[in-house]
Simulated assay, not measured.
Amino acid sequence: MAMGLVRPGKRQRGSRRAPMAEINVTPFVDVMLVLLIIFMVTAPLLNTGVPVDLPDSRANALPEEAEPVELTIDGAGTIYLGEDALAPGELPERLADIRTGVEGELPQVTLRASRSIDYGRVMAVMGELNRAGFNQIAMVTNSTSAPPASIAGSDEGQ
């Protein structure tokens, strides 16, 4: 009967195992890969805003500051502050509200304007920004490695 045999040097009762020296990282890697896939899928969906056909530029990107004021002018000429459409003539009072709510240096303004909008309309908005004291204005464009068609000799942009 082999059931009653005990190996020499081994205790049958009260024996303790030696602590495990290796950690099983497979479950950790599985969880991290699932989280990575979730973030890769949801990251493009987090970019919200007003859809605008931006012009192209080869300018370098500016360093991003905390919470810039976002102004957008769409192809129809409607002005948006963040995602809120402004009524005609409402921009100066909204800028004044932002100015009174900020202590110290005013935040940078990012201005996005459709390429089809009249240049005078963009300059009028920039004039209101300047009048309200917002002097740090960044104009948002699409990044391109080739010169934009409007300066590369093509009449497409005109």
Rank of each mutant, 00 (worst) to 15 (best):
V41L: 14
T72M: 08
A113N: 12
P51R: 01
T100V: 12
M139L: 15
A43W: 07
G75F: 02
V50R: 05
T72A: 12
E64P: 01
G82D: 06
R7V: 12
L35F: 07
A124D: 14
S57I: 06
T26Q: 12
S150I: 14
L36C: 12
A138E: 09
G4A: 08
G133H: 05
A59K: 10
V25N: 11
P44G: 06
G101A: 15
I117G: 01
L36W: 02
E105F: 03
V125P: 01
T72F: 08
P8R: 15
V125M: 00
F28D: 00
Y80S: 03
R17A: 10
A21H: 08
P148A: 01
F39H: 07
V50P: 04
S114F: 11
P27N: 02
G101Y: 12
E93P: 00
F39V: 10
P92C: 08
L33Y: 01
E103W: 13
D118E: 10
I137H: 05
D30M: 14
V25C: 13
L5C: 04
R94A: 09
G157R: 04
A138G: 14
V34K: 09
E90P: 00
L111P: 02
S116V: 13
I137M: 07
A21Y: 03
M126R: 15
V109Y: 06
A113Q: 09
V25I: 14
G120K: 05
S143R: 13
M1F: 06
Q136R: 15
T110Q: 14
Y80L: 03
L54S: 02
N60S: 10
G89Y: 03
V102D: 04
N24D: 15
V102R: 13
M126G: 05
I38L: 15
A76V: 02
M32G: 07
M123R: 12
Q12T: 11
P148W: 07
P88R: 13
P55I: 10
R121T: 14
I137P: 05
A61R: 08
S15I: 10
Q158F: 10
S145K: 11
E83V: 05
A87E: 15
A149L: 12
T48S: 10
R112N: 00
D155P: 01
G4H: 08
G49C: 07
L95G: 04
R13F: 04
E22D: 13
E67V: 13
L46M: 09
E128H: 06
A59Q: 07
V29F: 04
P92F: 11
L33V: 07
G157F: 02
P68G: 04
D30Y: 06
D56C: 00
I137Q: 09
L5H: 07
N135W: 06
G77C: 12
V140T: 05
T110A: 11
S15D: 05
A132P: 11
R16V: 10
S143F: 12
R131T: 12
L95Y: 04
Y80W: 14
A132W: 08
I79M: 07
L62H: 09
L95C: 10
N24Q: 14
S143G: 10
D155S: 12
R94G: 00
Q12I: 11
